[in-house]
Computed example of a mutant assay.
Amino acid sequence: MKKAIRSKYSRPVGLVIILGTLLSLGFSFPHNVVPWLLGDTSYANMGQEEWVDGLYRGFQYMLTLIVVYGFLTVIPSNPLKVSEIGERTLYVYLFHGFIIKSLEITVLDKNLFNISGQYHLLIILSFVICLILGSYVTKKYTRPLVELKI
């Protein structure tokens, strides 16, 4: 697997996969696709009861594996400044819900609906949340809550 990810042409192929995915989803993201992406809803509850729908789910899984391959090819082997934030992903994972729920409560429903269609803005907001929650300051002040001494 490591040879496939670190081969000579893997990084350009991975970049094409990632950029192609971002562009295609940015311009033609289907509506009501969340149950399909999460994979936690039965076909009957999604209004799909044909045998072909299982093939669609299998195709989705195959595309997911291709995108994962593209993602793994662009991850650097050498430590970078961003790697420090990556070491603190537990803090991002644990605390991002508080920020999202606070925004959901404070922003009016009609504004929330308008914002939800702005995928570029959502990507930027996600990046900012990750930078804030992955910072050293967040770890410093929340470490007693997250890493309990037993």
Rank of each mutant, 00 (worst) to 15 (best):
E84A: 14
Q48I: 04
L112H: 10
E49S: 15
N78W: 09
G47A: 04
L15V: 13
L38Y: 06
H120G: 12
Q118C: 07
G20P: 03
G54I: 09
G117C: 06
V34C: 06
G117V: 07
V82E: 10
P76Q: 00
D53Y: 14
G97D: 05
I85Y: 13
E87V: 08
G14I: 01
Y9R: 11
P76D: 03
I100S: 05
Q60R: 13
A44D: 11
K81M: 10
F59Q: 10
I99C: 01
I150F: 15
L23S: 03
G20S: 09
K101W: 14
S7C: 13
E87W: 06
G97S: 08
N45K: 14
S77R: 07
L63S: 05
L15E: 08
E104G: 09
L15C: 13
V52N: 11
L23P: 02
V13M: 08
K2L: 11
Y91M: 14
Y69W: 02
M62H: 11
H120E: 10
M46C: 04
L19D: 03
I132T: 05
V137H: 05
I66P: 00
F29A: 11
L23D: 00
R143N: 11
S116G: 03
G86M: 03
R6N: 09
P79A: 07
L25K: 07
F59D: 11
L72K: 08
D40L: 15
V13Y: 01
K2S: 09
S28R: 14
I105G: 01
K8S: 00
D40V: 12
Y69R: 02
S24L: 15
E87K: 15
N114R: 08
D109C: 05
Y43I: 02
R6S: 06
L65D: 01
H31W: 11
F98T: 03
V128R: 02
L38A: 09
L23A: 02
L55Q: 02
W51D: 12
F27L: 15
G39H: 03
Q60A: 14
V13W: 01
L125F: 02
Y93L: 14
S116F: 02
V128D: 03
F71A: 09
Y9H: 14
S77V: 03
L23E: 02
V13P: 01
E147Y: 14
G20Y: 09
V107W: 04
D109F: 08
S24E: 10
T138E: 01
L65G: 03
L15K: 13
L25R: 06
S77E: 15
Y141V: 13
I100Y: 10
V146R: 08
E87Q: 14
L63M: 14
I75H: 05
L19I: 09
D109I: 07
G26D: 04
M46E: 04
L38H: 00
L148I: 15
I18K: 00
I75W: 06
N78K: 15
L94K: 05
V34P: 05
T138I: 12
I132R: 00
S116W: 04
L22Y: 06
K101H: 12
K2W: 05
I99K: 02
Y56W: 12
H31Q: 13
A4P: 07
F29S: 12
L131G: 01
L108N: 11
Q118E: 10
T73R: 00
P12G: 00
Q48T: 05
Y93K: 07
L145V: 04
V33A: 07
M62Q: 08
